[in-house]
């Protein structure tokens, strides 16, 4: 019998590395700016706000809404194609390994708490909410609201906690810390957003930000998600993430997949107990809820579960019968 491996480990290193490397525009954090290079033509595979001071890539959901909400386009083939490509190659492995916001939630779940909640009444129906978020907030509303001009990204504006955490808080904090000159202080409040502040002869990167009810609303959502993450594993990924919804649908056909060998299974149930997403991998190894964290693979004492990324699954070979 193989010995069960330690939970997390190498995966957390990969998560940390990927989060750092894709948010490595250090100047942004220091100067309150954002990256403006051509790398932003490409979408991040995970949920990573493009307004994050360090972000080098675009947010796939934000970009999808930007194109869907633009009067120049009927649909977004470019962004949707990119999401489809990530999904077809990796499925929800993106959630488990490459999503910075998923990583943040996992770290919060590591905070010791007396009773961690694995499941509750209404857990399964609530998981369908992310498909509604995807269809209504991400796709339908930006498309429907563009009648009188380009529409705003509804999901980003009213729901996305990743945007608040990665971009909202850093920019607003920077903005509050950067003291405006007296003249600007004397200006009426409403005129401030149109003024570029001059501080010591250096033009700041952004006008004064005015936080209102929307910022408070988004901050409240973030606080709820953060608190929930302490006792529920990845609550945002489970119930609300539209990107996870797309990747989840593609889990069964993605090249990266979980394999279950029934002959090796001794039905000990350790894998289902270890799964923080509440899946029994022996029943459905490629469930839409599986984030490919490999906790079940590492826990399995007989090696009945394994992951694979095989180009062989691009083709199926069958013997051709003659005379038909």
């Amino acid at each position: 019998m193989a010995k069960a491996k330690k939970k997390g480990g190498k995966r957390h290193i990969i998560q940390l590395f990927f989060a750092c490397i894709t948010n490595s525009f250090v100047t942004g954090f220091v100067g309150g700016k954002i990256f403006r290079g051509k790398l932003k033509y490409i979408c991040h595979p995970g949920l990573n706000c493009y307004s994050c001071p360090g972000a080098l890539l675009s947010c796939p959901i934000g970009s999808l809404q930007a194109v869907l909400g633009s009067r120049s386009f009927l649909f977004s083939t470019y962004v949707f194609g990119m999401i489809l490509l990530f999904g077809a190659l990796l499925g929800r492995m993106v959630c488990g390994f490459l999503c910075p916001f998923g990583f943040v939630q996992e770290l919060l779940y590591k905070i010791p708490f007396k009773k961690k909640i694995k499941t509750f009444k209404g857990d399964k129906p609530l998981r369908r909410l992310k498909y509604i978020v995807l269809v209504v907030l991400v796709i339908a509303l930006p498309m429907l609201l563009k009648t009188s001009g380009d529409s705003s990204p509804v999901y980003c504006k009213y729901l996305c906690p990743a945007g608040t955490l990665e971009a909202g808080i850093p920019h607003v904090t920077y903005d509050k810390l950067a003291k405006p000159p007296a003249l600007v202080n004397a200006l009426p409040e409403g005129s401030l957003p149109a003024v570029n502040l001059i501080k010591g002869g250096v033009e700041l990167s952004q006008p004064k930000l005015k936080t209102g009810w929307l910022f408070l609303w988004k901050l409240s959502i973030l606080i709820v998600i953060v608190l929930l993450s302490i006792f529920i594993y990845r609550p945002f990924c489970k119930y609300l993430c539209p990107l996870g919804a797309i990747y989840g649908i593609m889990n069964p056909v993605a090249l990266y997949r979980l394999n279950f060998n029934k002959d090796k299974c001794i039905s000990c149930g350790i894998c289902a107990k270890r799964c923080n997403m509440g899946i029994d991998p022996t029943k459905n190894a490629n469930s839409a809820e599986c984030v490919r964290c490999k906790d079940c693979v590492n826990a399995c004492p007989t090696g009945a579960l394994s992951t694979s990324f095989s180009l062989d699954s691009l083709v199926c070979k069958s013997a051709e019968r003659k005379g038909i």
């Binding site: 493009y50 307004s51 120049s72």
Partner: peptide, 24 residues
């Protein structure tokens, strides 16, 4: 998407601070 010019829309959105995304 590239042929239709979508990447420019993506870049235009991504290189400026998205006020909606940050809750402003």
């Amino acid at each position: 998407g590239v042929y239709l010019g979508e990447p420019d829309t993506v870049l235009r959105k991504a290189i400026y601070i998205c006020m909606e995304c940050i809750g402003i």
